[in-house]
Design a protein around this nucleic acid. Structure first.
Lengths: 185, 185
DNA sequence: ACACGATTTTGATATAAGTCAAAAAATGCC
DNA sequence: GGCATTTTTTGACTTATATCAAAATCGTGT
């Protein structure tokens, strides 16, 4: 079954017509490790679900990559900036493993919101949930030391540590790889 | 005119019945400098607009107050956690000047979403806009040094600097007051 | 099992920011 | 206008993290 619809159903009811409409606009991609899904400046997709694989989002700061988040299977993701502002994303999204992904484009999503206003309930709840996740991240960056942020990560996404190399995790935590290596010891 | 309705109208259309319903559920408060609007553990209000005055949101970390944001006139605010999860907020909201505020409670808002589903369009857009603001804050905390964060603040909310003391701003930036004082020089 | 490249760790040193204490300046109040 | 309180600045020292360089370890393909 279409995993995007599955995710939507967690937030509210979809009638048959709406379900069909989402189905018709969903695109499936298979991507190899290292490939990009979204590059800075594009605004390809808005909501997507990873069926299999692992992704990271990063942006460039002084020519250096900084990871902003990691995504695992069956989470719903959005490139929020494109969804709302129609501006291109400043984020890049790259696959860290061979991945399967189901996505709906900004334009299609906006069309669905227009034709099926009841989808706004689901959209609202998703956006609110994203807010909470973002707030927690802000709290973490605002108040925690590098050591504490590492401990939070272990607590919240323990399996990431086995799938992602230290450099990526350090950049997510906002510290250098050397410092992270020392923290672990 | 009710400033909450004014704000809502920036995001979408409200028919007469809905407008009246919002009107009936809006509460007006006048609060003196130093008073609290929301204390950790409560979940009083969800959306509110400051008609006049200045507020700060803060939380406690190891017994120390950390400011998470400041709010000025005619911005719309939400205590997101209560809105979505019905869990109490971990934030405290305090007035830094004598203030006038218009608010709608979590329960009333949820009722409105149920009775007037078209309000979900507005709620979605507000939540999405909040997401963008939060993402920018994350970027700032993640990638910028104390000096850069201070410069960003000057650029984005220059008038705050005249209304709020250094200690509060330092805590917002995630640095000590002494460091901020040295940066300014 | 070996060799190659990628990843992680270690070491020495530099820099940014924190801490604590006190002085200086600004603000409010009678 | 002068006193008390709050806010801001300064100084000396400490701690956390960054930087650069090199060594050690791991993983994969042959």
């Amino acid at each position: 079954m279409n995993p995007l619809i599955e995710q939507f159903k967690k937030y509210g009811y979809l009638n048959e017509a709406l379900e069909k409409a989402v189905e018709n606009r969903t695109r499936y991609f298979f991507k190899k490790k290292g490939e990009h899904f979204l590059r800075e400046g594009q605004h390809l997709s808005s909501y997507f679900v990873l069926r299999k694989g692992l992704i990271r989002a990063y942006f460039l700061k002084n020519g250096r990559e900084m990871n902003s988040w990691f995504g695992e299977e069956n989470q719903i993701f959005g490139s929020i900036l494109p969804v709302y502002t129609e501006k291109p994303s400043f984020e890049n999204i790259q696959f860290l493993e061979d991945s399967e992904i189901y996505a709906i484009s900004v334009d299609d999503l906006n069309e669905l919101y227009r034709i099926y206003p009841e989808l706004n309930l689901i959209g609202r709840k998703i956006a609110e949930e994203v807010c909470i996740i973002l707030e927690e991240r802000i709290m973490s960056l605002h108040t925690e030391s590098a050591v504490e942020r590492y401990q939070s990560l272990i607590r919240l996404q323990p399996n990431l540590l086995n799938r992602i190399n230290l450099g990526h995790i350090a950049s997510y935590l906002g510290i250098t790889q050397e410092t992270l290596s020392r923290i672990r010891r």
